[in-house]
Design a protein around this nucleic acid. Sequence first.
DNA 1: GACAGCGTACCGGTGAGTGGAACGCCGGCA
DNA 2: TGCCGGCGTTCCACTCACCGGTACGCTGTC
Lengths: 261, 261
Amino acid sequence: MTDPGPGVALDTVLGKAVALLRAFRVEDTVLPLAELVRRTGLPKGTAHRVAGDLVEHRLLDKTPHGYRLSGGLFELGMRAATERTLLELAMPFLQDLYERTHETVHLGVQEGSEVVYVAKIGGHRQARSPSRTGGRMPMHCTAIGKVLLAHAVHEVRDDVLGGELERRTPHTVVAPGLLRRQLSRVLETGIAHEREESTVGLLCIAAPVLDPDGRTALAAISVTGPVGRFRPDAHETALRAAATALASTLARRRGGALRTG
Amino acid sequence: MTDPGPGVALDTVLGKAVALLRAFRVEDTVLPLAELVRRTGLPKGTAHRVAGDLVEHRLLDKTPHGYRLSGGLFELGMRAATERTLLELAMPFLQDLYERTHETVHLGVQEGSEVVYVAKIGGHRQARSPSRTGGRMPMHCTAIGKVLLAHAVHEVRDDVLGGELERRTPHTVVAPGLLRRQLSRVLETGIAHEREESTVGLLCIAAPVLDPDGRTALAAISVTGPVGRFRPDAHETALRAAATALASTLARRRGGALRTG
DNA sequence: GACAGCGTACCGGTGAGTGGAACGCCGGCA
DNA sequence: TGCCGGCGTTCCACTCACCGGTACGCTGTC
């Protein structure tokens, strides 16, 4: 069901088109036709034609070296109501937080059993982190993920805790019991920690942006920095302030739908 | 040619799908099926089915009140190489600029004969501006637009200057001659001004992010603030610094393609 | 100079997609 | 209460858009 598998129904035109678009990973810039064929499994001729159609519709750009996701797609993506509303309302708070900490600040939401980063802001001295705006990360090894997981519905929590907890670094928590205990503490303290669990050399703390009901988390905010200079405790207050302030702003502007429910 | 018209070839499945997605304007959050039918001109049954397919492919969300652009589209859009690379490399400079000015900061690129905003960052006190990340604005009445227009190829410049210069406010420059003179000054000074030309009550200055060749502008950065407290001259230095610093960063990391050329 | 990998183009068969029509549901209005 | 317009949904037989195997020309590389 939730398993997207490698290919999503290639028997329909739309499926092929989406497969071509999704063939692009976050780190890709330009993919030649042959690579698209390899990744999607589409027949060469078909891929060629559909890609051409996508170019006409401004979803792909054609370059001498292959295809590239087009700016039209960027525009379209920025119209996604949930993410854009969240982003616009959150930006001032993220700015404040960045100014106070001068460390990388993230805003993330839960999507399925993973985290999607809606915003990432940082300066020149930012720690080298693998996260990207619009990118995904597992929940069990990131501070934002733990916060969201702690507040998630039982179904998702059990799903993640029951599934494989991928070891990303020597410090990744892969024991379900330990992780469950950490999640309990997150609910008590309102703060989640990550200590080199997704990337060696990186520390992170996160706080939830709670729904007015106080149980479900609409999003989470985090501050990340490198081992050595980064003192998590020093930023807790600012982080909490940002998260709760954003929460009450969201509660006020409850006009736009921020969740499917 | 560059006129997309209202509908883009509804005779193909892909065309219909794209039409449905593009039916969403920046300010829309949820659109009922009937509204989609109205905007696209598709037969009701068809719209229903295609929208359903789009939901399956995670490009649309279905809510009790209608359809909404899905988070999957946000993720996809953020993979658009040009915009994302630019955004990631620019963010630290935009942060610096914001910290120094505490006014709204924009990053924009030229797309056709319009401006597309790739980033917009601001704090709580930000001026109420109509711009949105991922949104479009005309070139003739915005500071970023004027900068890009001044450096654009003759074709585009003549196209814009020859076309209708929409009057957005009483201050909008709608005389081609005057505008052309302003553009010349932009080339001389390296700074473009906007004085309530797109929105009453708003001032803005912008500077180009130049290609190493020094002629074409890859993007533009601007600082915006409200009439009254906003002193354009006070921010010129910081703005120039940000723009040139970003330019040399881009020149260095010339790996990824930032233009079709 | 043979070859492998790529992008491109062609084209007849066919089944996925089409869209008109009809249904049931609601909420507004008289 | 009963009518009516607008909406979302479902159905189905026709047909034309799409499919993908095949073939071509181009480029680098052994």
